[in-house]
């Protein structure tokens, strides 16, 4: 019995650690792939606030954009109350790219331009243990 105690304690600590870990993740950590009918890849890792701070992106509408009727981006308005999928459909229409391509152009495009941030599939679509897709 005495020998079991340290092991039990260890198990308890570990499970407590995982519990805390699981509950401390209220911030956005992945981009929801629900808008895709039959997702082929694990959802993208994206710590929303941390990312934008690290990447020093000031304007929300760098990503949450709004375009006027002529297809010009409206300078000081943003659309963070909407999902990308509210406007971007599975298929492209006119100059508006399809949803997957919209994400890829937006994310990868900037990373390539800046020479910083992930560009390979698996750097964004990370297969992780312990996290169900």
């Amino acid at each position: 019995m005495k020998k079991c105690f340290p092991i039990l304690l260890l198990l308890l600590t570990v499970s407590l650690f995982f519990l805390v870990y699981a509950y401390s993740q209220e911030d956005m950590r992945f981009i929801n792939a629900e808008a895709f009918e039959n997702p082929q890849r694990p959802p993208t890792v994206f710590n929303h606030d941390e990312h934008n701070e690290l990447a020093q992106i000031e304007e929300c509408n760098e990503c949450h954009h709004i375009y006027d009727k002529e297809g010009k981006r409206v300078e000081d308005e943003s659309s963070e109350d909407q999902s990308c999928s509210d406007c971007h459909e599975p298929k492209a229409s006119g100059r508006k790219p399809a949803l997957m391509k919209a994400f890829h152009i937006n994310c990868k495009g900037c990373h390539k331009e800046k020479g910083k941030g992930p560009v390979m599939c698996g750097q964004c679509h990370v297969r992780r243990p312990n996290v169900e897709d």
């Binding site: 390539k112 941030g117 560009v119 390979m120 990370v126 297969r127 992780r128 243990p129 312990n130 996290v131």
Partner: peptide, 24 residues
């Protein structure tokens, strides 16, 4: 899937910029 096989530590890939340049 790595979900079942990989140790947790393998998840934190370092973000090598040299690798990305090579990839590009």
């Amino acid at each position: 899937s790595r979900k079942y096989w990989a140790p947790v530590s393998a998840v934190k890939e370092h973000k090598g910029e040299a690798m990305n340049t090579l990839y590009n």
